[in-house]
Nucleic acid binder design. Structure first.
Length: 266
DNA sequence: AGGACGCCCTGTTCGC
DNA sequence: TGCGAACAGGGCGTCC
């Protein structure tokens, strides 16, 4: 679930609803998710302070506190972020709960415990330490082409590599390649400049449209492949049956008719 | 360097 | 129907 558009929705949720309320307690139900601190450490960091801003880089959400400290939330494969009004029960699999003095709270949920919480000195410091590439929405066509020029191997694998481009995972790489008409196993080096430009434009439009749809497949444009990504699904463009292959260790869904194996369809 | 793999964890879906 | 196997949208380490 949580790729760039999902995390952007969580960022906005935090920004719109959870700022400027005094943090009373922090309940960490799964301390193994704490990367660089302890229950006590996170509690000390947050207690008495307020979230004052929310930033995002790729799939990482950074919650800034009025003290200048930061809390990084990564959602793994099955995480989310919920804001709870006073009296609302924390959802199942809530692994970390920030309870505010006004009795509202912010819940970090991670069903499969594959997420991560850290306390970097700044988003920049975290991005540098983890060697993350630029955020996908911050990459212009030149930066995109420069990244491609350094990369060998399959295009899907490159799009999903957080060190090259931060924010794209299995689902959105499929969507971007579908919109661009490029086969997921096509080699990056085989893409013409024109095709690469199209992939870049599709990266932006797909991510922006997904954010507009609140990252909910049911709200996405009819032209999107995402809601069809399953066995028996039909291509929204040619109505043919979509197919899957293994690429970059994951299942890639694509339309064999609209995304031919031959690269550089201009 | 990049790809294939196993692993982390846990719930759902698939196939016999 | 019932069961275990395979799989799910992330990321890391290891080996080739």
């Amino acid at each position: 679930m949580p790729e760039l558009p999902d995390v952007e929705i969580y960022r906005r949720r935090l920004e719109d609803r959870a700022l400027h309320q005094r943090i009373d307690t922090v309940h960490v139900a799964a301390p193994e998710l704490l990367n660089d601190t302890s229950r006590q450490g996170l509690g000390r960091l947050a207690h008495g302070h307020r979230f004052s801003l929310a930033r995002r880089h790729g799939k990482c959400l950074f919650a800034g506190l009025d003290s200048g400290s930061w809390i990084m939330l990564h959602f793994g494969m099955s995480g989310s972020l919920a804001y709870l009004e006073r009296g609302e029960e924390p959802p199942r699999y809530c692994r970390c709960l920030f309870r505010f003095a006004n009795r509202a709270s912010l819940a970090y949920v991670a069903r499969r415990k594959l997420g991560r919480i850290a306390t970097p000195t700044s988003p920049r410091a975290y991005v540098d330490a983890e060697a993350l590439g630029p955020d996908a929405l911050d990459m212009d066509a030149d930066a995109f082409a420069a990244s491609a020029a350094k990369r060998r191997g399959q295009v899907k694998s490159w799009l999903m590599d957080q060190g090259s481009i931060a924010g794209i995972g299995n689902v959105y790489s499929d969507e971007i390649l579908f919109q661009a008409g490029v086969h997921p196993r096509c080699a990056v080096g085989e893409l013409s400049g024109k095709t690469l430009g199209r992939v870049h434009r599709c990266m932006h439009t797909v991510l922006e449209q997904a954010i507009d749809a609140a990252a909910d497949p049911e709200n996405m444009p009819d032209s999107f492949l995402i809601p069809k990504r399953k066995k028996g699904g039909r291509c929204p463009r040619c109505a043919g049956e979509i197919a899957s292959v293994k690429a970059a260790g994951r299942t890639a869904w694509f339309c064999p008719n609209c995304q031919p194996q031959t690269c550089s369809p201009d």
